[in-house]
Nucleic acid binder design. Structure first.
Lengths: 161, 161
DNA sequence: TATTGTTATACTCTATAACTATA
DNA sequence: TATAGTTATAGAGTATAACAATA
C-alpha cells in the first residue's frame, strides 16, 4: 500500500534523480508515526482530564514507588526539560490538588513533590487506559516485530547522542 | 545496553507487577527516537537559517517541480495543518524573500505560492546537508533493517487512523 | 561558588473565529 | 452555499534571565 511518503519519495526521484533520498523513507515515517501516536495518546489523557506533560509527572511519581516523592530537579532530568518548565508543570498540577510541594528534610534548598491522594487516584485510573491505548497501537505488529522495532529505535536514539 | 526505558520498565515491574507495561518499551522508544531525531534535524536547519516548518514549505515547493508554485490550501493538506498556519508560515518566508504570493490565474479566489530565486537557492543548498544528517542518523542500521523499520512505522501509522 | 527552585518574560507554532472575495 | 485565503487573537508549552536561599 502506497502511503504519503511513497508519493513524496516519487516526487523527489523525478525532481532530483541525482540525490539519494532513501533516508527520508525511514525518518519521514518515524516522524509521522510519532505524530499519529502522540495524538492518540493525547485523546486518552484528555478523557481523564490530563495532557501528556501532566501525565508524565504523575506517572514518574507513581513508578518511583512509596512514598511517592521526588525532587523537582530530578523530574527535570528524567523529562529532559528545564527546571523552570518543571516548576510550571507543578504549578498547574498543584493548583488542581494533584501534587503538593513539601520541604525537603535532607536539603534546605530543596523541595519534594508529593502525589496527593487525588493525584494518586487519578494516575492509577488513567494508567490502565493508557496502556490499553498503547497496546492497541502496536497490536498490528507481532511480539517479535515489536522487539525488533524497539531495538531499531533504541539504536537510532543512541547514535544521535 | 540498558537505556532509560529499561530503567523505567524496571520501576514499573516493581511498583505495578500486575500490569503489562510491555507496550511502553515500543511507544516510549518511539517518542524518544523522534525527539532525538527532531533535535538533530533542527540543528542542520539552523545552520542554514531555517526551522522545520520553513524547511517543510520550501522542500514541498521544490519537490513539486517547475514552475515551483503551489496553492496554500494544498500546502495545508500536505502538512496536515490549518490554512491559517500556512498563511503564517508564508508570512515569515515572504518577509525574508524566500517565497512570494502570486494571483492564481485559474481561480480568482486563490493564490499561488512561488519559490523565489533566493528561496530556490537556499533549499537547494540545505537539502543535501539535510539528507546527510538523515543518513548519519540511520547509518547504524543495515539497509534491510531500515526497510523493516520503515515498514513497522508505516503499519503503526496506518493502524492509528 | 555551585546548586535548587521560583517567577517574569518572551518565543514558537498552532488553532479558532471573523471576515473578504470568488466559485 | 462552499471554498480560498488572510488577520486578530488566544492558547499551549517551553527556555532564558534574574533572583532568593542554601550547600
Amino acid at each position: 500500500m502506497a502511503d504519503q511518503l511513497d508519493r513524496i519519495l516519487q516526487q523527489w526521484h523525478v525532481e532530483k534523480p541525482e540525490l539519494d533520498v532513501s533516508p527520508m523513507a525511514v525518518i519521514g515515517r518515524l516522524s509521522r508515526a510519532a505524530m499519529a501516536v502522540e495524538s492518540r495518546l493525547a485523546a486518552t489523557f484528555a478523557r481523564h482530564g490530563l495532557d501528556a506533560p501532566s501525565f508524565d509527572v504523575l506517572a514518574t511519581l507513581l513508578r518511583s514507588g512509596a512514598p511517592y516523592r521526588i525532587a523537582p530537579v530530578k523530574l527535570a532530568r528524567e523529562a529532559m526539560i528545564s527546571t523552570s518548565a518543571v516548576a510550571q508543570r507543578l504549578n498547574k498540577l498543584e493548583s488542581r490538588g494533584l501534587v503538593k510541594r513539601e520541604a525537603n528534610p535532607g536539603d534546605g534548598r530543596g523541595t519534594l513533590v508529593a502525589l496527593t491522594d487525588a493525584g494518586r487516584e487519578l494516575i492509577e485510573t488513567t494508567l490502565p487506559d493508557h496502556l490499553e491505548t498503547e497496546h492497541a497501537i502496536i497490536a498490528t505488529l507481532s511480539v517479535e516485530e515489536q522487539a525488533n522495532l524497539a531495538m531499531f529505535l533504541q539504536r537510532i536514539t543512541e547514535s544521535s547522542r
